[in-house]
Each structure stands twice: as C-alpha cells, then as structure tokens.
C-alpha cells in the first residue's frame, strides 16, 4: 500500500512539486518539518521538505529538485502512481511566534522550505520580508506565492537576470544598511549561503535560524549520520533539528559530511541515466 501522487507540476527546470495522499502525515505536520520517502523498493530513504499540507483532505505537498538517482526516479513517477514509503512529519517544528519584523531568505532550492514558514510567520502577526535568490531567473521558484504572502518581496540572482545582481546576503545587507530594523532572520539554502548569512547577521546581532539538510538514513534519531556540531555539541538534525541557531552551527563540518558519498551518488545517477537512455533507445537508435 503506497502513497498516491495526486498532482505533479514542474516549478522550474529541475524543480518539481508533488501533491501526495498521506493522511497520517498531513494530520500533525507543522512548518519546519519534513518527510522521508523511498521512491522504489530498492531505493534509499531521502528527506524532503513539507511545503504544504491539507489536513482535511489528508494531502501533503512536497517540492524537490532533481539532483541524483532518487530524485530523478521520483520525478519520473506520474499522477496516479504510488510512492511506496512516505513517513512523517519528522523533525521539530519551527518555533513560530510574533517576533516583529522577520526576514526570510531562500537560496536556490531552499526557497521551498521557506514557503510554509512564511505563511506561518505571517499568520502569527509578523511583518515578513522575503528575499528569494537563485543563480538565474529561470531557477527562481514560488515567486507568486511568496510575493503574495510577504509584506516585502525581493529577488536576487547571481547573474543579474532578475532583481538585484548578487546574493541574498547582499540584499539583506542593503536593507540593514538602509536602516531596516529586523528582529529575526530565517535562512534556508545551500550551505555556503547559510554560512554567509550567519556571518552577516552575527555582526548585526540578529538571531538567525537555519534549516539544515545533512544526509539522513532513518530520520528518526537512530543512525546518527545527520550529526552536526552546534555550539560545540553534537546534535542529530533529524530529531534535534532540522532548524538550529545559525550562529552556533559548524557549517564547514556540515559541508564535508554532505560530500561523503558524492562519488557514489554520481556513479549511481550516471548508471541510472544510462539505463533510462537504453530503455528509450533499445537498439541504440
């Protein structure tokens, strides 16, 4: 008995949204939490952000980026197909309260994590600034949704194809230098982006929360592969996080640990792409 895909939509070149029937997960899911799924019977367990839930209908929306075999496999599933394993909600929910003015920074794919967070922060009465950044304009996701949910919305692109040319930190620095008062910052994205946000906000003394994305296996606190160093202490991101105080996180360690299986991941992905190619052209065209 699997979990049925009710809707599938392409958000960007490699970004895909899936609405999945998972009533047990939907019932208790809160912003900041994630699910773990296994795309097929020989698949690995991968953590993905919960972008949205509909408790009444028992639906969970996930957004993911195709980066390797598992996500590629997932992206090839169609509406009506079933995902064999889908467990959650996992991790601690985000601490949501009325902080005052909050800035939410999404870098590249991290923007998917921001989406439920921005909604919850807004509902809690915050003044919400969103900075949505990507390498290039075509890689920006959830633009309309975030624009609608936020009080102020900014875009940055590395190549300047849209919004400010530069990084999300450049925009944040600009706002701060222009005298904007910000009570709390949330940043989700690639590790170097989160690290540079942390460096910036440390100087301005603004509490900053990051959502970390280490490698996970079970996601239930059992294996410890997701261990991160926070303030000199080892924490398991799956049960103690995934959100932590950015000023205490050892980002260099996180980056190294994320790279642990890079070569094997690449090998597996290439093998799979070749398999797909052979399937499309059985006689080598």
């Amino acid at each position: 008995m699997g979990f049925k895909i009710l809707e599938k939509a392409q958000l960007g070149p490699d970004s895909i949204l899936m609405r999945v029937s998972a009533p047990h997960v939907a019932k208790n899911a809160k912003p900041g939490q994630f699910i773990i799924l296994r795309p097929h019977e020989k698949g690995e367990r991968i953590p993905l952000t919960i972008a949205r839930t509909d408790k009444e209908k028992g639906e969970v929306t996930i957004i993911f980026q195709v980066v390797g075999k598992s996500t590629k496999y997932l992206s090839l599933l169609k509406e009506g197909d079933e995902i064999p394993d889908f467990v959650g909600p996992l991790g601690r929910p985000t601490e949501i309260e009325n902080f005052g003015t909050v800035a939410c920074l999404g870098g590249g794919f991290g923007t998917a994590v921001l989406y439920p967070l921005v909604r919850a922060l807004r509902e809690a009465g915050n003044y919400v600034i969103v900075i949505n950044g990507a390498r290039s304009a075509n890689l920006l996701i959830l633009e309309n949704e975030l624009k609608e949910l936020s009080h102020e919305y900014y875009v940055t692109t590395d190549d300047g194809t849209k919004g400010l040319k530069g990084f999300v930190t450049d925009m944040l620095r600009k706002l701060l230098e222009d005298g904007k008062h910000i009570d709390r910052v949330f940043a989700v994205g690639p590790v170097p982006m989160m690290k540079s946000v942390a460096d910036l906000t440390k100087n301005w003394n603004i509490k900053t929360i990051v959502s970390l994305n280490p490698i996970m296996v079970d996601g239930t606190g059992m294996c410890g592969v997701c261990r991160v160093n926070v303030g000199g202490e080892t924490k398991f991101a799956c049960v103690d996080g995934p959100e932590f105080d950015a000023h205490l996180v050892d980002f260099d360690l996180l980056m190294k640990r994320l790279a642990m299986y890079k070569d094997l991941e690449k090998y597996s992905y290439e093998l799979f792409l070749k398999e797909l190619e052979d399937k499309e052209c059985p006689g080598k065209c």
């Binding site: 020989k42 698949g43 598992s70 296996v217 991941e265 090998y267 597996s268």
Partner: peptide
C-alpha cells in the same frame, strides 16, 4: 548490494 540498491556505504 549497491548500486543495485541505491543506498551506498563506504
């Protein structure tokens, strides 16, 4: 059984 199974180990 990697790469038949997707989870790697080193």
């Amino acid at each position: 059984k990697f790469p038949e199974y997707d989870t790697p180990i080193k």
